[in-house]
Amino acid sequence: MTTVAPADHHEPRTRDLPPAIEARSLYRFFRAGDEETLALQGVSLAVEAGEFVVIAGPSGSGKSTLLACLAGLDEPDGGTVRVSGQRLSHQAEPVRARLRAERVGLLLQSGNMFDHLSVMQNVMLAQQVAHRPARTDSEALMSSLGIAARAHARPDELSGGELARAGLAVALANDPVALLADEPTGELDHATEQQVLRLLELRALAGVAIVVASHSPAVAEAADRVITLTDGKVSS
């Protein structure tokens, strides 16, 4: 990314460059009838470029909510989210959409692809949405993820491992500052899980900030840093 974040003088600065993705005291409530649950209770974190961070914690601890807020898919009730210094939270949806398109990659547990498009078309569509049309780029990206041979296959023709790598190709299509992944290996067996983790580590080495929400111990082992959530709070 070449866009330089506007200087923000109200925030204390520890480095010259802002973190790739940063959350400050995020709060998120959910209401169901009269009951109110606190999904996030003041969560703060900062992930630098090239860092591989895993958010761990039991089901219902707030991992998915945190990830949704970091990606700008959900709006925190309190606190701010910044992507390379630019505020993502409490912005109008068009602004969030633009920031997402330019700086954030998202890898979901499943459903990363459009069923009616081939792998190549899925990657190209993601690039076009982000106004980054470059066919050679997409081919290079697919080669680097070892999926080039399946470029013209449809998602339902892919094996579990291929699907995970193709999903990663789509998530990386816009050359994001930060890659956010929600249980990316939940449905994979151990060997495939390791393959995907190696690819994520390679991306981190290439300077992408990687944030993975997962309860898998194997994923946690691969991380530079593990942030554990319990009942919506950072417990370690």
């Binding site: 089901s59 939940g186 449905e187 309860h215 111990p217």
Partner: peptide, 8 residues
Amino acid sequence: TGQLDRAT
């Protein structure tokens, strides 16, 4: 238990 965390 595929969708569940370890404790559950």
